[in-house]
Simulated assay, not measured.
Amino acid sequence: MQIATREFVYILDVIQLSGKAPHLWQEILDVIQLSGKAPHLWQELGNFLFNNCDILKLGFSFTSDTSIIIHSLPHLSFNQHAGFLDVLSLWKQIEKNPNIKLPYEVQSGGPSLSTLVHLCLGRPLDKSDQFSNWEKRPLRQSQLEYAALDAYCLIQVYDVLKSCSEAVGFPFDDTCYNLMSTTKFKKKKSKTPTKSQR
């Protein structure tokens, strides 16, 4: 799990940490400025960050990532109206306005994060580690760099989208608010049949 701020990127190795002692969890939470001890530290992280409406959370096509996180880490208890902004949805809204011009042009490429990064920052993301073996430990330096950039680039892209939108009078903040108000996270359906299915 990657958590990026303007100053730092934190990579929480969920697989590696899940078998470690609780004091290690506390050290990690202290790093991201959580105080106090809690029996369920994931829940504390969820309340501090993921369920905090005052912290804007950026993602690109949230649905698959959040469904995996919700399934794997149920104590995070995502609140679907707690400041989550899907940058893909924002990009689609911005594209509807012909007056908004992003700094760079890309001849080809679908609606991917790499394409959007190229349009905003002038270079595509290096996706060579995207399909590498993420379960093998230790993670390679290139994997850590990929994970960090994958999260951090969203902040830079958001800033470019905002400045380009505001330059032509596009209601950027209102658009973001409307998108965040309609964000919904899908939970995986139980495979156990209900009485009506039996």
Score class of each variant (00 low, 15 high):
193 P>L: 15
144 L>S: 07
159 D>G: 02
84 F>V: 02
112 S>L: 09
32 I>E: 04
93 Q>I: 00
125 L>F: 00
178 N>D: 14
125 L>I: 12
193 P>C: 12
59 G>L: 09
85 L>T: 10
8 F>H: 14
99 N>A: 15
185 F>Q: 02
116 L>P: 04
183 T>E: 12
48 F>L: 06
105 E>H: 12
82 A>E: 04
151 A>W: 06
26 Q>C: 10
67 S>I: 10
137 R>Y: 06
44 E>N: 04
87 V>R: 06
27 E>Q: 12
25 W>V: 01
17 L>V: 13
14 V>H: 04
38 A>N: 08
169 G>P: 00
38 A>Q: 10
168 V>A: 02
197 Q>T: 11
137 R>I: 10
196 S>L: 06
54 D>T: 15
129 D>H: 07
126 D>L: 02
83 G>M: 09
88 L>Y: 10
58 L>M: 01
52 N>Q: 11
16 Q>T: 12
44 E>S: 03
153 C>D: 14
183 T>C: 03
100 I>F: 01
125 L>S: 00
62 F>M: 14
58 L>V: 08
99 N>Y: 14
114 S>H: 01
161 L>K: 07
144 L>C: 11
187 K>W: 13
148 A>Y: 12
80 Q>C: 09
94 I>F: 01
164 C>T: 14
44 E>W: 04
101 K>E: 14
121 L>I: 09
24 L>Y: 15
